[in-house]
Design a protein around this nucleic acid. Structure first.
Lengths: 169, 169
DNA sequence: TAAGTTTGTTTCAAACTTGAACCAAGACTC
DNA sequence: GAGTCTTGGTTCAAGTTTGAAACAAACTTA
């Protein structure tokens, strides 16, 4: 089959997308690194745990929720554990599982860090979007994410190479 | 000043955004790694060079165009040079500069790889968006990018920490 | 229930990224 | 025209990510 190249509009959108995502992630990473000494991902781990019941989550569920590989999460949690912000516990029911728990110190670190982070997200992203665009962005991103996960939906869940295997359950 | 937290709509958009960008970049990286043995960034270097006049670009300009740090580019070009896909040349007018040039072999690799890449970008992104959403995405991303670069524009170019120093020109 | 499969997690080496430090060449200043 | 600043690029060590392999605990099934 001959390649369906991108249309000019798609080209422009794709370039803008790559530029924006690079710049945004850079800005956020830099702010967090400076003010909290941790990359964005690590912050997200803390944030995610803080919202879970009892501030605890199984490693796999946490990885799934963050859309990252298990091995990447293992690294992050190991580091956060070393810093005392997270603790690992064994799962009582399934001895294979390990549970990441946000410590009080971790919660404190999160609370200390959150305002600056949110401020950055605002300044770099939301303050530049109209409410309508916020809706559009959510709509677009939700669609993309659904397409890339277990989002079996329409086109049938073919086993294409770019689909993460261990998606959700 | 008390923190302006994210509204529920913004929260949803932010989460969807992070999920989508993670999943998308993962999918694209995986496809390129499998089919071309290089990460997305390296592909972008080749693609960018291929469109430049004479297929050559100053390192700094290339970095600027890709929105990445110079040191990251140095690494990428070094690797691509080792693989024979790119070559470095000295700049005649400014002896500090070095110019990255796409070799014929690099162009061939790009042409061989592009269809699969574009197909993935389509399948994961554009095939899931309406033409209207493509426009919206471009608009949104352009705005974000403008805000984060030399895009001095409205809010005055304060020297905020999350702004990349060596922006443009 | 032993053998085989799946699931949850970690480990390890190789690859990549970061940021600060460095070096050299051009530009500016007095 | 020597000192100073800026720009273009690389280097280096420390940090992070990747993917495959290893392990161990469930689960399945003959």
């Amino acid at each position: 089959m001959t390649t369906r190249w991108l249309s000019p509009e798609e080209q422009r959108a794709w370039r803008a997308y790559m530029a924006a995502t690079h710049l945004l992630e850079d800005a956020i990473d830099r702010q967090l690194q400076q003010d909290a000494g941790m990359p964005h991902l690590f912050y997200s781990v803390l944030a995610n745990l803080s919202e879970a019941p009892e501030r605890r989550l199984r490693m796999t569920d946490l990885a799934e929720s963050l859309k990252i590989t298990r091995s990447r999460l293992t690294y992050a949690v190991t580091r956060l554990e070393r810093d005392g912000l997270v603790r690992r516990e064994d799962c009582r029911w399934d001895k294979r599982s390990s549970i990441a728990v946000l410590t009080d110190e971790g919660m404190a670190a999160l609370e200390r860090t959150a305002p600056g982070h949110v401020e950055t997200v605002r300044a770099t992203l939301f303050d530049r979007l109209t409410p309508e665009q916020v809706r559009q962005l959510e709509e677009i991103c939700t669609g993309i994410a659904r397409g890339l996960q277990g989002g079996d939906a329409e086109s049938g869940a073919e086993d294409v190479p770019w689909r993460r295997r261990s998606s959700c359950s």
